[in-house]
Design a protein around this nucleic acid. Structure first.
Lengths: 268, 268
DNA sequence: CGCGAACTTGATATTTGTCAACTAAGGTGG
DNA sequence: CCACCTTAGTTGACAAATATCAAGTTCGCG
């Protein structure tokens, strides 16, 4: 039974304790080669999960959080509020994404991390991360890869905002979410749960809420998307990607490009 | 005689070979504590400088460069070209900035790095970087800080583009360049060399060239900037920063916030 | 001095924002 | 289960920001 991309059940908590379907592991397999021992270590990180209710911040600007947060289910986002009350969402954090891996170095958050929709996260003590980076070079490299892939995503968003019109920009964003959620087993071939509001989307794309609404209608009219009851369907993924000129290279999913291996048990 | 922010002479090549005025060192002092030994090592990186003529790329998309590049003089930029010919500049690389420190991990460039205006850079073999990160934890941490500060800048650009109107956005960009260039001794209190064209600026801010021209006139009329013969003057820095709502926190210049120390020889 | 690139200007079209009203949907207490 | 209430989504009219096009004009350089 395929999981259908709902991410509704905490499927990574395998009763046998084996490293299965953990979104962090699933993601890192795309950027680095891990051994079974690495996977066990990563699996152990995900023990202490915590439910974060909607509208609650995970970390706020100017804070110096003691723990690192890792999203396991649902979405969180990076955002900034401006003096005039405007909000810009700068990143979506999906299962397998770290929220604040960098704070130890930078000292202080320059933005907030929140979850207008609620999510499940694990809190990892900073000491655990320090230990990881000190003793496990393969894992360290994998985490570094994840950081740099985030940076690539940020650059693509900049291109998106600067050079693409609202309709293509929105389509591009949907394509990105589809791929990123597929990676971690939270989307099936053509749909995923997407509980955000049109206002959230507006603050993501840097356009007004009214305009979001109109562009959405246009995309729906063109048959490019269907979005209701908090689930986004993409009838023809190839067509949406073409419309958005979506090229996933910037996500740097190098290791198992064609879905070969690792997700399935290896045949020895 | 103050250097006046020209960066025109290769002042970091001190005839005595001592670590003076090297932009990389100057910058890293803001993010990490370095010992004299660290400074010597960093100084040694900067030996083999190379002049890169205008309009030439340093690295191109999809390349796997063997060397890491460090800007020593002038500007380079990260950019992407879209299928329709549009260009988005995603970052300016000023003296002391690394161009492609991340490529070894990610494997392949997801964007190009070029210098429409010419610059001087040093090429550092990847092996040297590997050695640095293996044996010099303080330097490694400093480089990591620089990477994360770049990421913070990227986020701020996203806010800039998404939520600020063109005039404030442009003013914000000028404020950022002033501060970043001051850090490395390439700007004085209120001006710096700025050889970019209005078209470059348009592709930076994500607006049309014509609009850039009109916004520039508006800023000039308000007495916020003066820009001629490739030099940008800011008559009243405080006023421009207020206009742009510029808060440099995102640059994470934590170590010598108030200009105390290190630039001058320590007294003891 | 002349040539090409960069800058400037005006007229006009398009995109996007704002405001205000209205409708639909979801959740809660009675 | 319904009435109510709040929030999210939708619509139309209009205003503002920004893009496009085409024609000058200036500047820098050989």
């Amino acid at each position: 039974m395929p999981r259908g991309g709902s991410c509704s059940a905490p499927f990574w908590c395998d009763p046998r304790g084996a490293a299965v379907s953990n979104p962090l592991i699933m993601k890192l397999e795309y950027g680095a080669r891990l051994t079974d021992a690495d996977r066990d270590i990563l699996q152990d990180l995900s023990s202490r999960t915590r439910r974060i209710p909607p509208h609650q911040d995970i970390t706020s600007e100017s804070e110096r959080p003691e723990n690192v947060h890792l999203v396991m289910e649902g979405f969180a986002c990076r955002y900034k509020l401006l003096p005039n009350g405007k909000r810009q969402i700068m990143a979506y954090l999906v299962p397998g994404d770290f929220c604040d891996l960098h704070v130890a170095i930078l000292g202080e958050m320059d933005h907030s991390i929140g979850t207008p929709w609620g999510c499940t996260a694990v809190e990892i003590p900073r000491a655990t991360i320090d230990d990881l980076t000190a003793h496990h070079p393969r894992i360290t490299r994998a985490l570094w890869w994840a950081t740099l892939a985030d940076e690539g995503t940020l650059r693509e968003w900049l291109v998106n905002m600067g050079q693409r019109e609202a309709d293509k920009q929105m389509a591009h964003f949907f394509c990105e979410m589809l791929v990123r959620l597929q990676i971690v087993g939270c989307a099936n071939a053509d749909s995923f749960n997407f509980p955000i509001s049109q206002t959230d989307l507006a603050d993501t794309l840097g356009i007004s809420g009214v305009h979001v609404n109109r562009v959405l209608q246009e995309l729906r009219a063109k048959g490019l998307i269907a979005w209701k009851s908090k689930r986004l369907h993409i009838p023809d993924v190839g067509r949406l990607k073409a419309f958005a000129e979506f090229d996933p290279k910037y996500l740097h999913l190098t290791m198992r490009e064609n879905g070969n291996s690792r997700a399935e048990p290896r045949l020895s």
